[in-house]
């Protein structure tokens, strides 16, 4: 669409607009940098600024003296991993069904899948809690996964469906014509084609699950995921400097997969998975 001629005639932005635009980017990232700055404060009881000194000891404390944090981290990784796996399977199946055939109710599938992220998280959370509690199922690791998978499915679905739509159907026909059976066609033709979409969708799903807190507060029993731990510190700060270190780690763990997912999508001009 974009030709070189429109590039050369692209209007120049005024200085004011440039400043406003890049100022907004700074505003988006500034607060995260403040957290990073505060990981070096020696002050335990307040958030005094300017920092009264400089220390790196909280990294050591968080890493070596807090087994509760490690348990929370491992739990969060396990929950995110399994939720992502469920989302990859269900999202791909749904995308394949919507792509390959026209059936009654096809339009409502996208709507149903997007509901968990279109409705406020508290609705999903309390609905699941009511249902799980009503069925007398104990709240556990698995109830957290059930909650997370509901909103992870849609990101995989969107990425994979967008890829299916760009893939030409004749490739599959050619494979079948050349004698491959359905399974071989899936393994050698379809899967390589959707691999990066699966990777992008999976990383987004992982990041979404990893720092989810709203639904988790309703579907967790005694389990403390890392976000639940941070949330408890938000309401009643007890370990301020350690929380800063944990927050920095969470930023890195969620930021990197999303960055790579975005990069993958941008490079293959897919959708990034709809809007949250």
């Amino acid at each position: 669409m974009r030709s070189n001629s429109t590039d050369s005639t692209r209007p120049k932005a005024t200085l004011g607009l440039k400043l406003a635009a890049f100022g907004t980017i700074l505003f988006l990232y500034g607060p995260m940098l403040v957290i990073f700055l505060y990981t070096f404060t020696p002050e335990e009881a307040t958030y005094t600024f300017p920092l009264p000194g400089f220390t790196t000891k909280w990294y050591g404390v968080a890493l070596f003296e807090r087994p509760d944090l490690w348990r929370a981290l491992i739990l969060s990784v396990q929950v995110a991993g399994i939720s992502t796996l469920v989302a990859l399977i269900l999202g791909t199946l749904a995308a394949a069904a919507v792509y390959r055939s026209n059936f009654f109710g096809r339009e409502s599938i996208s709507f149903l899948l997007i509901l968990p992220i279109a409705l406020p998280g508290i609705v999903t959370g309390i609905a699941l809690r009511t249902a799980i509690g009503g069925l007398d199922i104990p709240f556990s690791f698995w109830t957290i996964v059930i909650g997370h998978a509901t909103f992870c499915v849609v990101v995989v679905y969107n990425n994979v469906l967008a890829r299916f739509r760009r893939m030409s159907g004749s490739v599959i026909e050619a494979s079948m014509d050349l004698g491959a059976n359905s399974f071989q066609t899936f393994r050698y033709v379809v899967l390589p084609n959707i691999a990066t979409a699966l990777l992008a969708g999976g990383m987004l799903a992982f990041a979404l699950s990893f720092d989810e807190v709203i639904v988790t507060t309703f579907t967790a029993g005694q389990q403390t995921t890392l976000p639940i731990w941070i949330f408890s510190q938000l309401v009643r700060p007890r370990d301020r400097p350690v929380t800063n270190v944990v927050a920095t780690i969470v930023i890195l763990i969620t930021l990197l997969p999303i960055f790579f997912a975005q990069k993958l999508s941008a490079d293959s001009s897919d959708t990034e998975g709809g809007s949250k």
């Binding site: 995260m32 987004l204 969470v250 930023i251 930021l255 999303i258 809007s275 949250k276």
Partner: peptide, 8 residues
Amino acid sequence: PLWSSYLV
């Protein structure tokens, strides 16, 4: 930031 680190 749209996708990540809401709580943080």
